[in-house]
Design a protein around this nucleic acid. Structure first.
Lengths: 238, 238
DNA sequence: CCGCAGGTGTGATTGTGATCACCAAGCACC
DNA sequence: GGTGCTTGGTGATCACAATCACACCTGCGG
């Protein structure tokens, strides 16, 4: 099966441009060649679904440009956002390897491009190229690690304030600091932030004004300025 | 480095006896041979730590007999139990692959044996044998999936009662039903159960008596009898 | 200009589980 | 038999975040 929404394929969209350490870089030339042969690239509009939880895995996606939201919902309408994927991230890897349904939904938050590799081609590629299989194992370790971190925050740090502090700090370390490492662009709504830390929109709003009152941070339009990083770190303490 | 506590090594302790689908079964004979060459077996007493969170990864363990508790703690003393490992499970895989510190602590809950494979030997084994690397990837997918399920329960199903119901149902499906699939041996203390579902000991006690009052289950000594499975399933609903 | 929609700010109320503070049972060990 | 120690049971209290119910603001399209 082919990725839907395909238009305007841009061929030189390589993941290596973004994250050297990732899946498909510095492989033997034979492997790289095979890889370009079996991958296809497509662009997706905003809100496009790369895949939806419960679907049988069609294959893996590698995000080239744009951001994607990985989320899961319960039957009673609650949603949690597990991760905001950035260019270079690999999506649907675990489901493709184990041939179990995608566990999450991947939705583009802005227009962007992604490579797609169909499951069968991907698996036989891995069987042929052991080096690549090991890379996949490493990537899955990272995924596991991230999921496990999520468990830690959800299970150990009880209060929403701790979780929000943790989230903000995670943003600040990941930020590709345009000018100042303490200035962050936040394009998420309070609703979405709430879904990331497992609380309600109202609580997020209140927490932000709390934090502002306590001089921890400031919110100017869509840029967030961290005023007292040590204090935030102390809230997370672990 | 060698596994501590080593005594009474029993050599024919093979994981395949327990779970055929797991890591090291049905490999090529060359691979199997290499594997028996690099693995060592040791027995551990109750409460022995196979590894502790934060330690640099020495290698992977494969549990042969006994059960092990995988847990993680925050600096302020709270602990969550992520998994009770059974014979056949692979411990420390993700940390070994990615060479990041063990994320969890693995503690024997009863005396048992485990195979150990040192990191360097394991990694070069994987590099030589691509087939095994793919197996590792599959195993990591399973780990990821389990962690992700944990995130879902912690993040989506708010109430402790839901979580306890979910846990009991999970036990009942995993139980190697001695006589009746609805009779389970529970060797965990309320405290430990609380750590598994992220609540307090008191709440667990109260929940059990609640469930008993509602005819959902019964607790006779260390055997738990499920009286109304459909009702429990309805509580979890998702 | 109006109207509308999506996002945000904030009060009042309420339920629920954490916490504290006990005591009772079981069991080991001297 | 006593003395600990771990585990289980239960009441009273309390804090905190979910929930409900608004009003407000901003941008946008007609």
């Amino acid at each position: 099966m082919r990725a839907p929404y395909g238009l305007n394929i841009i061929d030189n969209c390589l993941t290596c441009q973004f994250r050297e350490e990732y899946l498909f870089c510095n492989l033997s030339s034979a492997a790289s060649e095979k890889l370009t042969e079996i991958k296809s690239t497509a662009v997706y509009p905003k809100s496009a679904m790369l895949f939806i939880e419960g679907q049988l895995p069609r294959g893996v996606f590698v995000l080239c440009t744009g951001k994607a939201k990985l989320s899961t919902s319960s039957s009673d309408g609650k949603t949690i956002i597990l991760k905001i994927s950035e260019p270079g991230d690999v999506l649907g890897l675990s489901a493709t390897i184990s041939n179990k349904p995608y566990e999450v939904t991947a939705e583009m938050m802005e227009p962007g491009q992604a490579n797609f590799i169909a499951r069968d081609a991907f698996l036989s590629f891995l069987r042929e190229h052991g080096e690549a299989a090991l890379r996949v194992a490493e990537q899955l370790s990272r995924n596991y690690h991230a999921a496990y971190e999520e468990v830690r925050t959800l299970g150990l740090s009880a209060s929403p304030s701790e979780k929000l502090a943790k989230l903000v700090l995670a943003w600040s370390t990941n930020s590709v600091h345009p000018t100042n490492p303490l200035h962050l662009k936040v394009t998420l709504t309070h609703e979405e932030i709430a879904e990331m830390i497992g609380t309600t929109r109202e609580t997020v709003t209140r927490l932000f004004s709390d934090f502002k009152k306590k001089q921890l941070l400031e919110l100017k339009g869509s840029t967030l300025i961290i005023r007292n990083k040590p204090a935030l770190e102390k809230m997370v303490h672990s």
